[in-house]
Amino acid sequence: MKKLLLASSLCLTACSQLPYFGSEPPAKLSRPAPVEKPAIPVPAEVVDANEVANSETTEALATDFEHIFIDSDMTFEGVLPCADCPGISYHINLYRDGRFEARQEYLERGQVELISGSWLLERRTLHLVNQQVTLPSFHFRSNQQLVMTDLSGRPILNSDAYQLNRLTAVKKLDSRQPMLGLYRLQNNQATFVTCKTGESLPVANTQNHLPMMRLYQQDSRFNNKAVIASLVGRKGADQNGADTLFIDKFEQFWPNATCPDQFAMKDLQGIVWRAEKIADRYIPHSLNVRLIFEKDKLYGFSGCNNFNASYQQRANTFAVQQLASTRKFCADASNIEQQFTEKLQQADRAEVNADKLQLFYNNQVIMELIPAVN
């Protein structure tokens, strides 16, 4: 039994060592060093220098670096680029109850849109929702700045031209806009039906309305009849909360004019035309360059002065006689006025094409006019 245990012990001892030859035992073998894999490069994150970094301070505010919370009323303003005008001026009010109001004005074209609806916020992307008008979407760069997004929904950060900045306090929306419509006065109570929407509004008897009332009462042609008028006004609520027109500035009456019907315009007569372009240059809407053609005469306003003239239109020929005009000087309008009157008297052909009146000279378009609906 002892011999068996001794044999087993010797066998275990022999199996625990590697055989070697020579006087010195070999060094102990070590595991091979792991091979380092090449690091996969990670694209550097683009950092927006104007974006508020996350911290204990920003986390405590309503706006953090991940989400925007519209928990107070906000006003943003700015001018965004426009393809065929100097820019589009925006005034946007965001209300914490989910509503928005916006004023969109195409500069030099005088096209003003007052838009309201609801806003949706998707992380930092703001959508302004209205069923009739499509507005751009914006990215909250911070809670002080909106940046317009491109068609793919990414903020346009390569130019400061696409930014709207927040005002320090909420600003009431300027709801004044140019209007053209049918004005009627009976028993010192006036109504105004807008050509653009057909909405009928009572007119508030304010100080700015008095000159319009007097001119209407003094003109025997009107006699309680509806007459086209152009003005600058706003829709608001009276003391009883009813929708009312408040006139800011009366411009002119246009006897024998009607509201334009863009689907049935064939003749140039009876429409108040607004000069939109001289050659390829837009005429600022604020100058109110307009005219109307009657049977054999025309009259209008050229930005500074009133004018009238005789004209002839036969087949494809058109000719305006020498203009008679008042002689005021307006520094901001005289250059445009001179170009307008020169081109009007130069025209040798007039055509109503779609919703535009085009004046030609030697088969070249020298002026474009559109029906005035505001």
Rank of each mutant, 00 (worst) to 15 (best):
A53E: 13
T57H: 06
E59A: 13
A62F: 01
A62D: 13
D64Y: 00
D64W: 01
E66N: 14
E66F: 14
H67A: 09
I70M: 06
M74Q: 13
E77L: 12
G78S: 02
V79D: 01
P81G: 07
P81L: 04
P81R: 08
D84M: 05
D84Y: 08
D84V: 06
P86D: 06
P86V: 05
S89D: 13
N93C: 09
L94V: 11
L94G: 07
Y95S: 06
R96S: 15
D97Y: 10
G98A: 02
Q104D: 09
Q104M: 12
E105H: 09
L107T: 09
L107N: 01
E108C: 01
G110T: 15
E113L: 05
I115Y: 09
G117P: 11
S118W: 02
W119H: 11
W119Q: 12
L121R: 00
E122L: 15
T125E: 11
H127A: 14
L128S: 02
N130M: 05
Q132E: 03
V133A: 03
P136D: 02
F138H: 01
H139P: 00
H139M: 07
Q145K: 09
L146G: 07
V147D: 05
L151A: 14
S152I: 14
G153L: 04
R154C: 03
P155H: 08
S159G: 02
S159K: 12
D160G: 07
L164E: 03
R166M: 02
L167R: 15
V170R: 05
V170P: 01
D174I: 00
D174T: 01
S175W: 02
R176F: 08
R176Y: 13
